[in-house]
Computed example of a mutant assay.
Amino acid sequence: MVSNFRGIKPLLLATLLLVLFACSKAPTPYTWPLPDYVPKPVVPKDNPMTEESVLLGKTLFFDTALSGNNTLSCSSCHAPEYAFAEPKPVSIGAAGDALNRNALALVNVAYNATFTWAHNNLESIEKQIMIPLFNEHPIEMGVTGNEQQILARLNTPVYQQLFEQAYSTKAPTMDAVVKALANYVRSLVSFNSAFDDYAYAGNDDALTAQQIEGLNLFFSERTECFHCHGGVNFTQSSKHSFQAFAVQPFHNTGLYNEDGKGSYPASDMGLYSVSHNKKDMGKFRAPTLRNIALTAPYMHDGSIGSLEEVVEFYARGGNKANELNPYRSPFIKGFSLSESEKAALVAFLNSLTDEKFLKTHNRHKN
């Protein structure tokens, strides 16, 4: 039997072996790999988390067949070894076009109150996924106009089994594709860093003295870091099963001031491009800092190359600190740290790396 499957991608072959020997049954409720101190994410009622939908989504996520020209997968811009981010300032779409923004890490997005860098009306992963799939200006995955061709590529015995087990349909549909991708991305939870071991598991030896110094600086009024990167997910843009109210802050960090009056480049004015409210000029969502050491370069346009440079940027209060900028966040006011304190702050940010998460997803990507 194995000889009949030569040439099949390793992930697809592994998936096929699973589904061939699975009995027909109702989808299995998904088991969240969460520590006790982390509440479960909110899940849409019309797309419950199941083991089968996550497996389908994972298989699709790493498959170039999902792009219009069969050259790009979701993982091309969201690689597991970089905490599902990408080491480029901005991503390149299937047609070779440079996108406007840096690829956000897909870490704990199940807890996001909003999605993408600057949009206040995308309240679900399902809606967000439609953008990279169908966007035309610029083209990302290039699905628009190629839907039937893509679905035909997915109409294989392997995928037929997967779609049937996950969504009770052998024939692949774009609706099921979007839902499955959303559930796989939703499953990417990361709460097993050295910081977690120290703060929640009571292991006083989990952090070094330098990292503890950095932790204290991070949560101090000197640096103000925690105001925008607070909570269990190190971002205020979050919601979960214990939190009915979704906090959705966007912040102008003073990265640009094109006209001396706070204007951002016309190519990307942040939340203002969606709301058309001048108060939203240059506002972007503060992403999670979990696994942040792996996701360089930083900022919405990938314009800052390292964590050390990020600390320097905030220490000087943004790139135009001495010019009038009515839109800059009041928390971006600059601070003074010694070189050793700056190093301690970076050391603390490194303690947010979840090695177990990385090993698990790097092992399972193929």
Rank of each mutant, 00 (worst) to 15 (best):
M1P: 11
L12H: 09
L17H: 03
F21C: 04
A22I: 15
K25H: 12
A26T: 12
P35D: 08
D36G: 08
Y37N: 10
P41A: 10
V42M: 11
N47V: 14
P48Y: 01
T59R: 03
F61G: 10
D63Y: 09
D63L: 09
T71D: 10
C74F: 01
S76L: 03
H78N: 15
H78A: 09
E81G: 04
A85R: 01
A94G: 07
A94F: 06
G96P: 11
L99S: 08
N100D: 04
L104N: 07
L106W: 03
A113P: 05
F115V: 05
A118R: 04
I125A: 00
I129Y: 00
I131Q: 06
P132K: 01
H137V: 01
E140Y: 12
V143D: 09
L154D: 13
Y159A: 04
Q160D: 00
Q165I: 09
A166W: 03
T169Y: 00
T169P: 01
V178E: 04
L181Q: 05
L181N: 04
A194G: 05
Y200C: 02
A201L: 11
N203P: 15
A209M: 07
Q211M: 07
E213P: 00
L215T: 06
C228S: 07
G230E: 08
G231K: 02
G231P: 15
F234T: 14
F234M: 07
Q236A: 06
S238G: 07
A244W: 09
A244T: 14
A246V: 10
G254F: 02
E258D: 09
Y264T: 15
S273C: 05
S273F: 10
H276Y: 10
K278R: 12
F284R: 02
F284C: 03
A293N: 08
A293D: 13
L294W: 05
T295I: 15
P297R: 06
I304E: 09
E312F: 06
A321T: 12
E323Y: 02
P330K: 12
G334N: 05
F335Y: 15
E341L: 03
V346G: 07
V346P: 08
F348Y: 12
D354N: 13
D354G: 13
E355R: 13
F357G: 14
F357W: 04
K359R: 10
R363L: 11
